[in-house]
Design a protein around this nucleic acid. Structure first.
Lengths: 249, 249
DNA sequence: GAGTGGTCTAGACCACTAC
DNA sequence: TAGTGGTCTAGACCACTCG
């Protein structure tokens, strides 16, 4: 193997990392195509003048990233591109839709301050009857109703938020830009329901139609709940795609 | 560090794997609690009489699994339990239920060979009309119906599988032990449906009740489809829990 | 400065795949 | 049988954290 790039042994960047980056670039540039066989580890080691262990560490990270496939006794191969990237991302409806090529919009149905009932207080870890900002929106993709979302945020975190206009903006965007609040993690539960008359009317489907419901708690970096959202998405237009691996990797 | 268990150097099981398993068991048994510091790598290496590289490989896999946390200059620590491993893990219904503390069982409704229709042929990447093994089961938790699953496997991969008894066994178990086939990845789509009369009767719920449907393709290490499964799980008893992170972690 | 994990070497032998 | 990746050793030195 000709050493296309050369590793800098005096660099503070680890050799395995430099090597991994080089290989990554060659794969992403299409120079190494899916199912192409890489040179043997021993050959790579010789070409770049590093030990086999270093080559293995670089390749190991590419394997973890799903870009490369090792087959004992045969060799190392460039993997077929994956259907979807690993763990599910925490994004907004707006972002998610635009990534799928749809124009996302929303209609604000309610913007108010309510007192936390017992369930909301528990979910958001605030005292019962605490004031919460409530935002209910009809979410649309390409102008067609996709689902209903109702978000609750402890009012003390977002003083004055009632003045905000949410027509063109995402809730996460406003939390970020006006209050410097961004979730570090979210826990989301999905389950199946049938829509009631009000939901059916708003979504333009028949009452009793199936829908995917979700409850989500988004947490701040310290672990404090930032937001609790209930949503009901049309069963005929919305689905969840998951990529699974054995043993959590 | 006292060597609680001892590694068998003559075993065909790699030393790093034995060591990883030992540590895993001590964590899962609660002997090592969250935030406990593990002994230094050098000490573990000495205690079990292996090299530091072997210890690092064992610990590295525990880090990947999220069970352990390495902090440079400080040490290695037992991680806080994750909120949920969620369905990001590829497991069988049997395993999943037993992990949640339920007794899983199943009733085989159909075991046959069918010809692939166009959709099945595409999903399993086999020629149209190829013979497929078809297994339809009613899945129960603690004796109560939870859902229906129909799996399809290309017959050429599992010659003679019709003779197998699936009453007490998982499909994945049989594929593994009798054919040496284990999925490396799966892609699963979930959506909401309402059950039809047959499904309702089998599940013991009213027709028109909501249910969580899923379609899953499990892939072999090389990327060849091993299995396609359609399932319908009771909406009142089944939900999906997801842990989300910004920007894919 | 002492102790930790992070990187790296130069070898060795084994297990598996292909011909 | 030859070639591949898989495991393992016994060292070495570095980078980082903490008292």
């Amino acid at each position: 193997m000709r050493a296309e790039g050369v590793l800098d042994k005096r660099s503070p960047i680890p050799l395995y990392f430099q090597l991994k980056t080089l290989l990554l670039e060659r794969i992403q540039a299409g120079e190494l195509k899916p199912n192409d066989q890489l040179p043997p580890e021993s050959e790579i080691a010789a070409a770049y003048d590093v030990s086999k262990a270093t080559v293995r560490q670089a390749l190991g990270e590419l394997v973890s990233a799903g870009l490369v496939l090792r087959v004992q006794g045969r060799g190392t191969f460039v993997a077929e591109p994956r259907v979807e990237q690993g763990p599910r991302e925490l994004t907004s409806f707006t972002l998610e839709m635009s990534k799928r090529g749809h124009a996302a919009s929303s209609r604000v149905l309610d913007k108010s301050v309510v007192a936390a009932d017992d369930e909301l207080a528990e979910r958001l870890n605030v005292p019962a009857a605490s004031p919460l900002f409530r935002l209910e929106r009809l979410r649309l993709a390409d102008g067609e109703p996709m689902g209903l979302q109702t978000a609750f945020v402890p009012l003390e975190l977002v003083d004055g938020i009632l003045e905000q206009d949410f027509t063109g903006k995402s809730l996460y965007g406003v939390l970020q830009t006006h209050y410097g609040l961004a979730p570090a993690q979210a826990i989301e539960r999905h389950f199946a329901v049938v829509v009631n008359a009000r939901q059916a009317a708003l979504l333009g489907i028949a009452a009793g139609s199936p829908a995917l419901a979700a409850e989500r708690v988004a947490l701040l970096p310290g672990g404090r709940p930032l937001e609790f959202t209930r949503s009901v998405m049309r069963g005929d237009r919305y689905s969840i795609l998951l990529e699974l691996f054995p043993n959590g990797r």
